[in-house]
């Protein structure tokens, strides 16, 4: 079953002569438990796509359907609720609140949903423990390494048990080892916990952890590749393919 589907998704910036189509009639889908990577050169529309999928921005035309609901037709409040309950976000710059501890940061979406603090923190603790941060619960972001911060961010994305996790260059700010850890973690999110993950990245090594890679160029889907091995070993193949497609 498809958790995510887009139909002729188009986003145009500007008007008249200066109009630029960031996305031009994108049709894609992601099934339950699937890990999809979106790749492409700078300015190809990766980030715009992710913003539209997350309901952070509005399409010029076309549809984004998440779990059967058309995002474009939702009010701001309904969208907020959708993000809180059905989606998780992982950002390049972690975006943890500097004033909250790791467990509080991870518990944020459920706390925002009105769940009692103890209960919310218990859930967050569970996820952080799974990600190897049991000893770091009370630390604030500035007391954590980049990799640890991003693991907290992944825990935050999963704490409300969402169907869909959207990740925007989640390893862009990390060293190679931490990057691999996070990519592996995201793969587990799909395989072990049955969530759909859509990740935007420009790093072939990271994209090679996905089930499927969608290549974008000039706002269009130009290729899709299904990977057999999902452990980063296909990185070279992905890189080659990307270079070829880019030209």
């Amino acid at each position: 079953m498809n958790i995510l589907e887009t139909k002729n998704l188009t986003k145009i910036y500007g008007k008249g002569d200066t109009a630029i189509a960031a996305l031009d009639g994108i049709n894609l889908h992601a099934a339950e438990g699937e890990f999809v990577a979106v790749m492409g050169p700078s300015g190809c529309g990766k980030s715009t796509l992710l913003h539209l999928l997350g309901g952070l921005d509005h399409p010029t035309s076309g549809k984004v359907i998440i779990n059967g609901q058309d995002v474009a037709e939702m009010t701001d409040d309904a969208l907020t609720e959708l993000r809180r309950r059905e989606m998780g976000f992982v950002f390049q710059f972690f975006n943890l609140l500097p004033v909250l501890s790791a467990v509080e940061n991870a518990a944020l979406p459920v706390m925002l949903d009105g769940v009692k603090a103890e209960e919310a923190k218990a859930k967050a603790t569970e996820w952080l423990t799974r990600f190897g941060l049991a000893e770091r619960l009370a630390n604030r972001p500035d007391q954590l390494s980049g990799g640890q911060q991003q693991r907290v961010a992944v825990a935050r994305a999963l704490v409300s048990e969402p169907k869909l996790v959207l990740a925007d260059e989640p390893t862009g700010n990390l060293d190679t080892r931490s990057g691999d850890e996070i990519a592996g973690l995201l793969r587990d999110v799909g395989q072990k916990y049955g969530r759909t993950v859509v990740m935007v990245t420009h790093d072939p090594r990271i994209a090679a952890y996905a089930d499927r890679i969608i290549f974008l160029k000039d706002g269009r889907v130009i290729d899709e590749t299904v990977l057999e091995q999902k452990n980063g070993k296909n990185a070279e193949m992905v890189a080659e393919r990307m270079t070829k497609l880019a030209n």
Partner: peptide, 16 residues
């Protein structure tokens, strides 16, 4: 700006 954007992204309403 960043913190608020993130809060909004992870589901904080305008009211929050």
């Amino acid at each position: 700006q960043h913190d608020i954007g993130m809060l909004r992204a992870v589901g904080a309403s305008r009211r929050t």
